[in-house]
Design a protein around this nucleic acid. Structure first.
Lengths: 212, 212
DNA sequence: GAACGATTGGAACAGACGTTCGATAACGCA
DNA sequence: TGCGTTATCGAACGTCTGTTCCAATCGTTC
């Protein structure tokens, strides 16, 4: 039952189709729950009801599977953010939109983003380098906005180290969400989003929090 | 060459002495670098120059080894923080001291704290519950301080969810440090500490950053 | 120096792992 | 109907894993 959608299935293990989507989704779910190292190909095969050997028709190795998940997810997020950033907004509004888009992306690709966040180090060589380059671009995009907000004072070299730290703090808040987020307890997401933006822009003691 | 320091070596696998310390330190170093699942007992044996079977004289199982690292480290951190908190400080000053103590603890137990931060889920059953209880106490301590700072306005139920989120954001900033900290690039630690406190208390646009 | 408990290590077990091979089945198209 | 490509599977491989057994060693005490 070959139900391939695209006719671009070629030699070098670059398969596509709904089976591939199923495998990537299932693997992301398992790896998000148990980690990459603790998830076996056999687990993924069991989850997708495919055979163990059949997995290797869709990816070259376990690491290749991890790479496929990370690359497509991060590229998709980056595309969204670069489009948002092309609006050329004010610094504060730019950060609001970036954080909002980031959190919105979480709701659509929670498992995949968790893997991007915690399993980069499980990649090696060229695959590591490629995903890290995407991450670097995302960092630069954010650091630029943070730098703009900070640059109300001046723009010397010292501010670069400062912007780097503040950017990493913001990523810390965002990335750590995976460790505690509970869809029921933390609904609505808008509250969480507003609070994160508020802490980033005004801190605990700054302007009054947004009206609840 | 029995060089035990304490004469309290009893039946139920509760050994001590410099060998145990060496094992815990080496295991923490390896696990911090490669993760718990990716670190084998054989790796630890190689690092400590002890035999594979000899490991099991000091811990009952691999998970017990992980538990020993997490429990003693977290208990030590908690002890420090609860002593600091007993000073009964002002809310803002209390948060400053808590973050400062936390970061100071990082510099002394980086590997161990990284494991406490990222490998709680690798514990199961009673061991999981015990370490989680320590973590919960640490969270409550912090959330109490954050709540005090927030409570300048009022103290209804809504503020509890708010304090929870802000506390988790602060832990996000702190815990994510393990993913990017570079002792050379990020020296001196005081700058990092000041900036984290500033972001938490005043945000990016609040009171002017501390004089560099 | 003999007897003892504390400590160490070589060798092996059973299971799980990633990966490969060869055969089979399903399909699009002539 | 037949053919070539696409897709799938059962079985096996070599390796690594956590753990255990049992014998050997050590320092200490009689």
């Amino acid at each position: 039952m070959a139900e391939t959608t695209a006719g671009e299935n070629n030699k070098t293990g670059t398969r596509s189709g709904p089976r591939l989507e199923l495998i990537l989704t299932s693997a992301a779910s398992l790896m998000a729950r148990n980690g990459y190292g603790q998830t076996s190909i056999r687990d993924v095969a069991r989850e997708t009801k495919l055979s163990l050997a059949g997995m290797y028709y869709y990816f070259q190795s376990k690491e290749d599977l991890l790479y496929k998940i990370q690359h497509r997810t991060f590229a998709s997020l980056l595309e969204e953010q670069e489009e948002v950033a092309s609006g050329d907004l004010d610094g504060r509004e730019g950060l609001r939109r970036l954080i909002g888009t980031h959190l919105s992306f979480y709701t659509r690709h929670f498992n995949e983003m968790k893997i991007c966040t915690f399993e980069l180090q499980s990649l090696t060589g060229e695959r590591y380098r490629e995903v890290e380059e995407l991450r670097r671009r995302y960092f630069r995009l954010t650091a630029g906005i943070v730098g703009d907000i900070l640059a109300g004072d001046s723009t010397d070299v010292e501010h670069e180290a400062e912007a780097r730290h503040y950017t990493l703090f913001i990523f810390g808040m965002l990335n750590w969400i995976f460790m505690w987020f509970d869809p029921e307890r933390d609904a609505p997401l808008e509250d969480l989003c507003d609070r994160l933006i508020h802490l980033a822009l005004h801190g605990l003691t700054g302007a009054p929090p947004p009206p609840a």
